[in-house]
Structure formats: structure tokens, C-alpha cells
Amino acid sequence: MSEKAALGSWSSGLCGCFSDCSSCCLTFWCPCASFGRIGEIVDKGTTSCCLHGSLFCLLGGFSYLAGIYACMYRTKIRRQYGIEGHQCADFLLSCFCSACTLCQEYRELQARGFDVSAGWKGNVQMRTSGVTAAPVVNGGMSR
């Protein structure tokens, strides 16, 4: 099987904003918050939402630097989930259609089972909330 055949696609289209108005509104009114949430989930909590959002906001004033920063995370999402695409397309989309790409990335993480608004720690807590103790293992080997 070729590499291209093994790769998947995005769970929603680039212009699929109508399927999730809340992430679209967040991205339209405050793209820094949207990007911060995405960045925290993609980095698995190693960097906070606040730091990602602040950097995105600061870089937004300097031509396409915010687009380059967003491109890095779009590429990370594609690689983590085996989504088909190219870094050149990630760059162009992140620079010229940043709101659409952020919405698509937000929806992708939601489709992968994340509550993006809860952050990384919130998602970890939700997934482990039912686990209260390690499973009991019967002692010794038996025949």
C-alpha cells in the first residue's frame, strides 16, 4: 500500500464552519483563544493555552508570522493523525485562510474526542475520572 493510500483526511472540510458555530464564533472574535486551545491539546499540555494564545496574538502584528506559527501546529495535527497534506499547503492556508484553518483544526480535535475548551489537563481528568484504583490481579501463577 502506498503512503498516500494509508493517509486519512480531515473529519470536516475547510469551510465546514456551519457544523459548529461555537468554534467559528470563538475563532472569529478571538482567534488567539482558539489557537491557544488547539496548541495546548496538540502539545499534550506541555505548553499552556495562555502562552500559545499570547504568542499568536503578539505575532499577529508582524505580517505573516502568526500564520507561520499556526502552520507549524496544522502540520503537527496532520502528522499526529495521519492526515494527508503538504507543509506548503499548510503554510498557504494558515497565512491566507487562518480563520478557516483554525476552525477546521478545532473541529478535528473535537472529532478525535477532545473537549478543546477543557484543555489538556481537563481532557486527561475526564478520561481517567472513572478510574479510582489499579485493577486487582490474582496473586501467583496457576495452571
Score class of each variant (00 low, 15 high):
4 K>I: 15
5 A>M: 11
7 L>A: 10
8 G>S: 11
9 S>G: 13
9 S>M: 06
10 W>G: 05
10 W>E: 01
13 G>E: 02
14 L>W: 09
19 S>D: 10
20 D>F: 05
22 S>I: 15
23 S>A: 14
24 C>I: 03
24 C>H: 00
28 F>M: 09
30 C>W: 06
31 P>V: 08
33 A>C: 15
35 F>I: 09
35 F>Q: 03
35 F>H: 03
35 F>E: 02
42 V>T: 06
46 T>F: 08
46 T>P: 00
48 S>L: 07
51 L>Y: 07
52 H>I: 12
53 G>P: 01
53 G>T: 05
53 G>I: 09
58 L>V: 14
61 G>Q: 11
63 S>M: 10
64 Y>P: 00
66 A>K: 03
67 G>H: 01
68 I>S: 00
69 Y>C: 04
69 Y>R: 04
71 C>G: 04
73 Y>G: 03
75 T>R: 06
76 K>S: 09
78 R>C: 05
78 R>T: 04
79 R>I: 12
83 I>P: 02
83 I>S: 02
88 C>L: 13
89 A>F: 08
92 L>M: 13
93 L>C: 09
94 S>W: 03
95 C>A: 10
98 S>A: 11
99 A>R: 10
100 C>E: 03
101 T>I: 12
103 C>M: 10
103 C>I: 15
104 Q>K: 08
105 E>S: 06
107 R>V: 06
110 Q>F: 04
112 R>E: 07
117 S>H: 12
119 G>W: 04
120 W>H: 06
122 G>T: 05
124 V>K: 12
125 Q>L: 14
130 G>T: 10
130 G>E: 06
133 A>Q: 13
138 N>V: 15
141 M>G: 09
142 S>V: 14
